[in-house]
């Protein structure tokens, strides 16, 4: 069982390492993740929201829907833990 797990791990790791060949080098300003959407956010987010912290502006405004359900996720986690564990009368 352990050898099988080790074998699967090494195989997956080898495939992933092979896949890293297609990624952009570290710290490249022209890499695909840095070229598409984020340039608009960096140039326009402060003008559109007056929030200098880009992470907060993105989190609260552009990705507000995401953040809302993030809060719902943590709320559901709390309720789930209460449902699973709590055994008090209060």
């Amino acid at each position: 069982m352990k050898t099988l797990a080790l074998l699967a791990t090494i195989l997956t790791g080898a495939i992933l390492l092979y896949g890293t060949a297609d990624f952009a080098p570290w710290g490249d300003p022209e890499s695909p993740p840095n070229r598409h959407l984020s340039t608009y956010y960096i140039e326009q987010a402060v003008k559109e929201t007056h929030v200098p912290n880009l992470v907060t502006a993105l989190l609260g405004d552009y990705r507000g829907y995401d953040t809302m359900f993030e809060l719902v996720v943590i709320y559901c986690a709390g309720m789930g833990v209460i449902a699973v564990l709590r055994r008090s009368d209060s």
């Binding site: 300003p29 984020s38 960096i42 140039e43 402060v46 003008k47 007056h50 880009l54």
Partner: peptide
């Protein structure tokens, strides 16, 4: 990714000098 507000409002921010805030 925390910009100078005045510089950003004037459009003087270079994209290559600020890390990508999306990730």
């Amino acid at each position: 990714p925390i910009l100078d507000k005045e510089a950003a409002l004037a459009g003087a921010v270079k994209v290559a000098e600020v890390v990508n805030p999306l990730p």
